[in-house]
Computed example of a mutant assay.
Amino acid sequence: MWLNEHEQALRRDLQGLASDLRWSAVELLRIAEQLRLTGNDVDAEAVKRLCDLFQGDEQRLSGYAEEVKAKIISRNKAV
């Protein structure tokens, strides 16, 4: 089944946001490692917790994008 233009835009937005979160988590993990190497374990652990949140949100957004593709979530007009 084809997606209408509004559903396609929604799916692209969800995928784009998920991708942004994924790359943000990658960068934050790099920063966390640098913090750990400088002996700042407390801040490194806090940054890693943020990464975990971002990764969970990324997975949720990717799931929503798949639901749009499967027509479980639909949009008839752009908001």
Rank of each mutant, 00 (worst) to 15 (best):
W2K: 12
W2M: 09
W2H: 07
L3N: 01
H6T: 14
E7N: 08
E7P: 09
E7W: 02
Q8K: 14
Q8E: 15
Q8H: 01
Q8A: 10
A9S: 01
L10A: 12
L10G: 01
R12M: 01
D13Q: 13
D13K: 11
L14H: 05
L14V: 07
L14W: 04
Q15I: 06
G16Y: 10
G16R: 10
L17D: 11
L17A: 07
L17P: 00
A18D: 07
S19G: 02
D20Q: 12
D20P: 05
L21Y: 07
L21D: 05
R22V: 09
S24P: 00
S24W: 05
A25W: 09
V26P: 02
E27W: 04
E27D: 13
L28H: 06
L29V: 02
R30M: 10
A32S: 12
E33W: 07
E33M: 06
L35F: 07
T38S: 13
T38P: 00
G39P: 13
N40P: 00
D41R: 03
D41T: 04
V42L: 04
D43F: 12
A44D: 03
A44M: 02
A46H: 04
R49D: 14
D52A: 14
D52V: 13
D52C: 13
L53S: 11
L53K: 10
L53P: 00
L53I: 13
F54E: 09
Q55R: 09
E58V: 04
Q59S: 10
R60D: 09
R60A: 15
R60I: 05
R60K: 13
L61M: 07
S62M: 13
G63L: 04
G63Q: 05
Y64D: 04
Y64F: 14
A65Q: 06
E66S: 04
E66M: 04
K69R: 08
A70K: 15
K71L: 11
K71H: 13
K71V: 05
I72A: 09
I73E: 09
S74H: 01
R75T: 02
V79C: 11
